[in-house]
Design a protein around this nucleic acid. Structure first.
Ligand code: MN
Ligand code: MN
Ligand code: MN
Ligand code: MN
Lengths: 221, 221
DNA sequence: TAACTTTATTAGGCCTGTCTAAATATATAT
DNA sequence: ATATATATTTAGACAGGCCTAATAAAGTTA
């Protein structure tokens, strides 16, 4: 399946999937251009091509959504990505915060056999080291998101971190350093009106910009 | 270094290196075209490009050799290839005979960090599962070949297999099945004039075409 | 709704790696 | 040494993925 789409197409499909999964609706040319670090005309011409090949539903000036074929490819690439990240952390001594780049390349190049061997070596995990759900081997399912965002919580809430979304490596390293990683418990101390959240965890008290707090998924306890 | 050459260039350089290491001299257009499964004009234009970028020394109608820059890239890619093959066998339950394709792709896509982590996980091996030498981390050295070819030996010689060169997967699987793998001892029973060698190992007696016997490197004991 | 701003598409071009067909250089055989 | 065969290069084309500049559509504001 994935071999039907070039590496570049696979990345477009994956990114369309990720944007829509996070916030629904459809994806605009400029949004995709920004995420893929490519010019808008490049996106337009790729969307035309992906549309012709029935990977996406694209209507001029109206944004793009995935067609079934495209969603399957997106899930396949995402499964590879998240399995690779997990493998690098569990078996090759990578840090949580530094696996992304490597996985972003290798996701397109491992065989189905290697995917299987990696998944087996890991015991078929359902989540990657950031807490992101790994699509099932048959690509039929991916864990539903039942979390809230740390940035939505109010003073006094006590939560457990379930997931930290992809961000710049330095940001992730900082969060790791202050103990804001999946599995840790955090209490919301205060929420300032100008977008700063103060939190306490086992490491002490820390303040984070709301944007960062919104990229941390949690469950209230 | 390797990032200066495209994936395709890396493969040309690697294959030029492999041909010259095996038999010296220079490499012809048609030879390379055959090895790379590409048309001769494609090779010509690539050689011109590699020459302009000082990766090779190429003279029209006279074949190609590697320049220093090109040799370093070839060694780097080869190190990746052989480390990956070793890793797949040692840690991901691949069979000796089925690692080649995977490594042929991944060799271009792993980072220097991953190379290092893989090498460490393996204890910095000097040889891959086929017995081929792995270039050193600084690419300054690669084990000298001190073996003879099984196909050169005469009746009565007793040898140990040191290396089995890359061939079709099915051929390697057959050799594995009859116990012709690195580390095993073999006695040459007879050498027929029409190019058939008969051998005895712990599995019994087997005949191999001379061409195959020539791709098995051994040391006489 | 008219003017202006923002977003998206069209037009045209470039580079890489590949191909086939035609031309030419080199090697081989009579 | 000439003719023939083989190997190689040149010429010209194409698809993929990207770009900038120009144009046009959609959205926003007055
Ligand atoms: Mn990618
Ligand atoms: Mn897969
Ligand atoms: Mn390769
Ligand atoms: Mn390397």
């Amino acid at each position: 399946m994935r071999e039907e789409a070039s590496e570049s197409m696979q990345d477009y499909l994956k990114n369309i999937y990720l944007i829509i999964r996070e916030r629904g609706g459809s994806v605009s040319t400029s949004e995709l251009a920004k995420k893929m670090r490519v010019s808008p005309p490049t996106v337009t011409s790729m969307l035309v091509k992906l549309g012709e090949r029935k990977f996406v539903k694209y209507e001029k000036y109206k944004g793009v959504k995935l067609a079934k074929k495209g969603e399957i490819i997106a899930l396949e690439v995402l499964r590879h990505h998240r399995l690779i990240e997990t493998y690098l952390v569990e078996h090759l001594d990578y840090d949580w915060s530094e696996v992304h780049e490597e996985a972003d390349i290798l996701e397109h190049h491992i065989s189905e056999k290697m995917e299987l061997r990696i998944a087996n070596a890991l015991g078929n995990p359902k989540f990657d080291p950031h807490g992101a759900p790994i699509p099932s081997a048959d690509l039929s399912s991916i864990a539903k998101d039942e979390t809230t965002r740390l940035g939505e919580h109010i003073s006094g809430d006590i939560v457990v971190i379930e997931r930290v979304r992809e961000r710049e490596k330095e940001e992730l390293q900082y969060l790791a350093r202050i103990g804001m990683v999946p599995g840790k418990q955090v209490e919301v101390e205060s929420v300032a009106p100008f977008g700063m959240v103060t939190l306490t965890n086992e490491n002490g008290t820390h303040s984070l910009p709301k944007e960062i707090a919104m990229s941390i998924h949690v469950k209230k306890i």
